[in-house]
């Protein structure tokens, strides 16, 4: 597996797109600091970008990489290698290289501007961790989609739709149902709804680190109590991990049955 991971990783490390992605974050990091020197404020701006962009990039790169590495995959399939090894290796290779672009791209400007000396270090680490989680989740989902659709255009379309659904439409339905069922206690419902969308869950986790937790407190103690405690934190991280593991598991299952 490590060998496949390594090859996928180096293959990507030489692709132009990885550099563009890396340079984008690098530039973003520097611009944010150039505009406002306050680290904590930059972290808030980054939140908005990260929870939308990392899933989108993960989805697009995931699907693109899956289809464009089809030949590579077929070459590997004829070799004495386990299918699981091949797909998990490629999956990890892509996810790691994307995460690395994110971490280095944002990390370098932050380190240069002295984030280690500021209290925002934890928020920032959290932000990168969440960004990493989202990358792994959406790459897994898009690999799964790639494996399910032989038609590249169809697969790409479905992947983008999935992103659109989780990033926008889901929240729309979420909001509408809360407005409609206003008369019922909603905190538990809202809590459950966030768990079923990794983007929402990530957003809440970062918001709670960003002093806006006060606002969540406004709706009654449920959110605050849940997310504010170690228990809630562990649950949230577990759910995010499940969001990686479950699609990966389906990915492996699908890969084992697929014809090439």
């Amino acid at each position: 597996m490590l060998k496949i991971l390594k090859y996928s990783f180096f293959d990507l490390a030489r692709s132009r797109w990885s550099y563009i992605y890396f340079l984008f974050y690098l530039l973003l990091g520097f611009i944010l600091f150039f505009l406002n020197h306050e680290v904590s404020k930059a972290v808030i701006t980054l939140l908005n970008i990260i929870i939308i962009l990392t899933p989108l990039i993960g989805t697009i790169f995931g699907v693109m990489y899956y289809y464009s590495s089809k030949e590579f995959t077929e070459l590997l399939l004829a070799q004495p290698l386990k299918r699981t090894t091949i797909f998990i290796g490629q999956y990890l290779g892509l996810s790691l290289s994307l995460s690395l672009s994110l971490i280095l791209g944002l990390g370098i400007p932050f380190v240069l501007y002295g984030v280690f000396l500021s209290s925002a270090i934890w928020n920032f680490t959290m932000l990168l961790l969440i960004g990493g989680f989202l990358t792994f989740i959406f790459v897994a989902l898009s690999f799964l989609i790639g494996l399910s659709f032989n038609d590249k255009i169809k697969g790409f379309g479905v992947a983008i739709l999935l992103w659109l659904f989780l990033a926008v439409i889901y929240d729309g339905i979420f909001l509408l149902s809360m407005i409609l069922f206003d008369d019922y206690p909603l905190d538990k419902f809202a809590l459950a709804m966030t768990m079923f969308n990794p983007i929402d869950l990530s957003r809440i986790l970062i918001l709670l680190k960003l002093d806006i937790s006060a606002l969540l407190g406004y709706t009654g103690a449920v959110f605050q109590k849940f997310f504010g405690t170690n228990f809630g934190m562990i649950i949230s991280m577990t759910v995010l991990s499940l969001w990686i593991l479950v699609p990966s598991w389906f990915m492996v299952k699908k890969a084992l049955k697929k014809d090439f």
């Binding site: 908005n48 929870i51 929240d171 909001l175 809202a190 406004y218 009654g220």
Partner: peptide, 20 residues
């Protein structure tokens, strides 16, 4: 305005849908 009427919707703060 929405949060005023349904406080729990605050959980969607800073989501893309809300921005839209």
């Amino acid at each position: 305005y929405v949060v005023n009427n349904t406080p729990e919707t605050i959980i969607l703060l800073r989501s893309l849908f809300v921005d839209i």
